[in-house]
Design a protein around this nucleic acid. Sequence first.
DNA 1: ATCGGCTCGCGCAA
DNA 2: TGCGCGAAGCCGAT
Length: 448
Amino acid sequence: MVNQKRVRILEKGKEKAGPVVYWMSRDQRTRDNWALLFAQELALERREPMGVVFCLVPRFLDATMRHYDFMLKGIQEAEKELTKKNIPFFLLPGIPEEEIPSFVNRNGIGTLVSDFEPLRIKRGWKKRVGEQVDIPLYEVDARNVVPCWIASPKQEYGAYTLRPKIRRVLPDYLEDFPLLRKHPISWKAKSKETNWDGVRKTLDVDRSVSEVNWIQPGEKSAQRTLRKFIREKLPRYDELRNDPPKDGTSNLSPYLHFGQISAQRVALEVSKTTGHKKSKDALLEELIVRRELSDNFCFYNPNYDNFEGFPDWAKKTLDDHRRDRREYIYSLEDFQNANTHDRLWNAAQREMVEKGKMHGYMRMYWGKKILEWTASPEEATKIAIYLNDRYELDGRDTNGYTGVAWCIGGVHDRAWPTRPIFGKIRYMSYNGCKSKFDVIAYIQKNRA
DNA sequence: ATCGGCTCGCGCAA
DNA sequence: TGCGCGAAGCCGAT
């Protein structure tokens, strides 16, 4: 049984006979997916068939072919897995508020289940879909271990205020997943396999940012990466994760972003291992507390991606320093082309452009410097989000918006000694990096 | 190498 | 109302 606290009703609608459909969006996987499991539970109870739909919009924020490619390969794998479970998959190119209601009507669907997403575009989709269908629309938080609305009913001030709330209820939610069953009731019409090449042609995205080859998309690759991480990197994770030139991080974030792996699965597998307590604690802190804090911020703060969303003390101090002299002011193009005076910053930017992933520690330095080298915090926020969303495989994620808000707007942070431009926002420096890790090695690794 | 001061406001104890 | 403490620091003194 899926814990009912993971489920909310978005639109009550009228209970109706007919297939149960999972509208897959944020959680693009067939294993360990509470939304999919909940849909199957409803379908079994009612002795109905079930199906999965994915609505593919022709463009989304600043996503490029790099992102669509990673995503589509993952969904293609999901289609195969679902077919084996007697669950048909339907890819609907177009806009959800048109495609989903039309699909519901054409196929006499009885119930719609969606996955949880705090970002405004997708909330808008769901709101309008809900208004246009007369059947129940559920939402399941398949993303977080503790459902976002259970963890806290309000925007949290920092990790330290969310942490105890999560810790209190974590044992109730950190449970193992049931397996998805081969569905006993078949969909009436025989479904056709998606024409994936045809689907690619419907996209209206920037194809100049290309695919990356250091990481393979899909949930099987995600599981492999997790096993390899636990075997090879977890033991020294605490020691190496903040050392950018060393390869000490999990590399799971693209999978987590597209929902090709569940954070709860990662937490379960890591918890099962013995020893390495400090490393495990560090990973679980990042995977659960900090990730859920990002969802909390974006869910409860409608201005999660702009200046207005920053705390009052941060807005005030940034306002007080608007007229401070800037030694360097760079344009979006300068930043994009890694054309600053700072070799370390340029190396981080190149890492992101070429690999679609920047080391977690460097993301902080990178964001802080964008604030320092632009004319205003608004401009800095815009540029940081644009670059992050365009190049990082895990862009357009609550983690990204929250990270930028931390760097530039003091979100989830505290005041620090006043200095030019930053005011009381925490500062980071080249010398600080130099004292913590081998900056030359990192620059060499990401040279032009 | 390590330490203290810098600085704000939440949340809890009282 | 007081107090402890926080998402990843910096800088200068020792």
